[in-house]
Design a protein around this nucleic acid. Structure first.
Lengths: 362, 362
DNA sequence: TGATCATGCAGAAACGTGTCTGTCAACGCG
DNA sequence: CGCGTTGACAGACACGTTTCTGCATGATCA
């Protein structure tokens, strides 16, 4: 009855194994496993007895052994493709934080945990962790890690349409073209004659799709494109680019900024040039931050709904892992939300919140 | 020589095991293991041959099996104690994101990966993942998970002094009292007569230490405390509290806000009451965001240096895991950085950046 | 009363790796 | 020429769990 008794071999004194529980409860290993996992056909008395003994010994099943035996680790990779040497891009912070938070919650609710793994990383780290599947944010078809994961047969769900012909299991994305077109129409409705764009020099799909949509819109309405591009990972470059955009001879009377800090940067630049917002300059930027509700004036923002995306991505991935033939589509488009504030309205606002494409309430 | 040959048992066709490599290379399992891990005493020819065959077969050692055998998983938990039902507090976002980024980088550089695990979470998730150690952000002595980890003998390093008598392996923190005192002195030097505080209702050590330091400073200089507290996880409550603070009959002429969004909130509130910053109201807030460099006027911020903290925490933890008797102290205090901008200076700024306590350059 | 069957539980085989022990050949040396 | 030594490798075990198979025991029924 000594509580320190362990298996015949001198295992770690701090950890009790399933054998110790079996010995202490006077049953076999099988019975312990079945009792704790609710698997076999045992009388409730035995089940309770085993559980009580296990609790008393502080028994915790070894995750490694369980993973080895079952082939499931309960771990999901959360991957960000990197452009510089940093794990993730600075401008993605608010988006990434929100998205990761939602993904963590969703995974946790279904018994999974998230592992942060930059796509560009030492190979040994990737192979050292047993993953059941992976979430990839904005994957590039250049990423050798992602293609190898797919080749190994692991489920891969991407946030953002996969570039090239990357055969991911499923993906979730916003309709970036529609979002940009909606914003441009919104600005034109507010009286903008020449709409500028603050965009990035990176090659990710978000930047690419948004810029392309802008250029096509300009072509359609017959406006000369007015845009400045800068490396989005450099916050200082953003301020400089905002300044450059407003210093141009063909200065726009409305600007949409693709990245989170663009709003304050553009506001500061407008102030330097004596431009009043929204009277002389209409402003919209893509951001998840609430600071734009309290700036002077409050700035209209486009939210990509990272929480909904994070949740959806994890649900799709776990469905694929568990082989559940869920009725969820493997390609989900999450609607964006345009939060209209003073900066994009020449008249006092009538509505505070309106979705960009669907007039009915969400 | 058929490439599809597998072990005697019909294992997954996609995954090659160490037995397959041994068979294909015409050597034993031991030789393969030694050749790949650089362990045994093998001629270079054999070593190269085995590695080549392993590469050709696309062999990846099973992480689960390795973990089971070696007892090391290469996984580090990243834990945030939660106050609401969300995985982490909203106001910690920028701090958490920066800290997590640095921690991820540091862990990766030493061959480890990070697992996000809310402290308040289903117990089965915690026991389902094999951790080598855990980083805990702002631990509460109420957290049963943390105390159990410590009891299990796992290394636990905390960001923030452990509350109560939580026996963590090591911790890293800022000197919050010194930081607050430095800011108050800075504001007083700039001419503030009555300094207010925007603080939180939560019981974490950061809020507690900062508030206590403020109250002691007030007592020392003989000023009546002027502060408003609000639940920090609610962004709207922050705006309301900022408004309340400036609406008081004993309105302060300088305010320090403990949380990230306080700067914009206070600025908006000041604008509503017609207070000019910094002429009528001096402003400082604790934030990691760069938006405060471009507000009107730019706002002085206190940075807690989350990147240095994240790096230090991970280094300490991995040192403890690997049993390296490192010369690093087990209690590290990271200096904060006061980034002085217009909002806290009645005169035009002489220096743009100055550390709060040490006059010499960092 | 003996055959059938469901029930409750024990034994043992994996999962895939790292590593301890042991074998066999070659070789140096007295 | 015999013997100890060393290099190069093979065999076998253990890590801790899950689960398949199978053996008792008692109950049910012809």
């Amino acid at each position: 009855m000594s509580r320190a008794e362990t298996s015949r071999r001198g295992s770690r004194p701090g950890r009790a194994g399933i054998r110790d529980v079996a010995a202490a409860a006077g049953v076999s290993i099988t019975t312990v496993s079945d009792a704790l996992n609710g698997k076999g056909r045992l009388p409730d008395a035995t089940r309770r007895h085993v559980r009580e003994v296990a609790d008393r010994l502080g028994y915790r099943p070894s995750a490694a052994a369980r993973t080895l035996r079952t082939g499931k680790s309960g771990l999901i990779g959360l991957t960000v493709t990197t452009y510089g040497d940093e794990p993730f891009t600075f401008t993605e912070f608010a988006y990434f934080a929100e998205m990761a938070r939602a993904a963590t919650s969703a995974a946790l609710a279904r018994g999974y945990a998230l592992v942060i793994l930059p796509a560009t990383s030492r190979h040994d780290v990737w192979s050292n962790v047993a993953l059941d599947g992976t979430v990839v944010i904005d994957p590039s078809d250049q990423d050798p890690v992602v293609s190898e994961l797919v080749r190994q047969g692991l489920p891969v769900v991407s946030d953002g349409r996969p570039a090239g012909s990357l055969p991911v299991t499923a993906w979730v994305d916003n309709d970036h073209e529609a979002a940009v077109l909606g914003i441009l129409d919104h600005l034109a409705d507010a009286g903008a004659r020449r709409i500028g764009l603050l965009t990035g020099t990176t090659t990710d799909t978000y930047t690419h799709l948004s810029t392309t949509a802008y250029l096509r819109w300009c072509e359609r309405v017959g406006q000369d494109p007015v845009y400045e591009a800068y490396p989005a990972h450099d916050p200082c470059a953003g301020a400089v680019a905002a300044d450059r955009l407003l210093a141009r001879p063909d200065r726009p009377d409305a600007v949409y900024g693709l990245f989170d800090p663009n709003g304050t940067d553009l506001l500061a630049a407008a102030r330097r040039y004596g431009l009043r917002v929204p009277d002389d300059l209409l402003l919209v930027c893509c951001s998840e931050s609430t600071v734009y509700a309290h700036t002077e004036p409050p700035i209209t923002t486009l939210s990509l709904k990272p929480r909904r995306i994070g949740t959806a991505v994890v649900q799709l991935l776990i469905d694929a892992i568990e082989g559940a033939d869920s009725d969820r589509p493997v390609e989900q488009v999450i609607p964006t939300e345009l939060i209209v504030r003073t900066s994009s309205q020449r008249r006092p606002p009538r509505t505070t919140v309106s979705p960009p494409r669907s007039p009915e309430k969400t």
